[in-house]
């Protein structure tokens, strides 16, 4: 794990998973890549396959149809893998928490398959792009503490 962790924090490759969101967090994630915020200068790159990803950006209240797909995608990602629960919906369901189609927020769905998963919460509806950048920085800081523990 220590080698994986130290290489992980150099350049985080992210994979975007929309788990029944309202699309708003998703366009703010895309906004991160464009000239105003430009996260590529920190080495954060959006990749096309979950197998290349170091971090999963999950948005939305997880509905019943998407839940098994989210769990499957998480299991396919190479470990260690950070899960960023982006937006209020991903944290507690927000306005949709009473919906008949709600299958638990992101952290519950992920922890069903991996109880030790690293989950970063980014609140907001939608969170500002600055908040998302700051969350990635905090996640890297958390990886440092994990590395210290592993030694």
């Amino acid at each position: 794990m220590p080698l994986g962790l130290s290489s992980l924090k150099k350049s985080i490759w992210i994979y975007h998973m929309a788990c029944s969101p309202c699309n708003n967090c998703d366009i703010e994630i895309l906004d991160l890549l464009t000239p105003r915020f430009d996260v590529e200068r920190f080495g954060v790159v959006l990749v096309g396959s979950v197998r290349h990803a170091d971090a999963l950006l999950c948005t939305g209240m997880v509905n019943r149809q998407i839940k098994p797909r989210l769990q499957e995608a998480y299991l396919q990602a190479s470990k260690p893998c950070i899960v960023l629960a982006i937006g209020s919906c991903a944290i507690n369901g927000n306005i949709f928490r009473k919906s008949y189609n709600m299958a638990g927020p992101v952290d519950r769905a992920i922890k069903e398959v991996d109880p030790n998963a690293i989950i970063v919460y980014v609140p907001g509806c939608p969170p500002k792009p600055e908040a998302m950048i700051s969350s990635v920085v905090k996640a890297i800081g958390f990886l440092d503490t994990l590395k210290a523990k592993a030694k």
């Binding site: 788990c19 029944s20 969101p21 939305g60 209240m61 509905n63 949709f96 919906s99 189609n101």
Partner: peptide, 14 residues
């Protein structure tokens, strides 16, 4: 489709 269904119309009634 169906991966985004959140049941808005039913939620609106509550």
């Amino acid at each position: 489709i169906g991966w985004n269904h959140r049941g808005i119309e039913k939620l609106a009634q509550g």
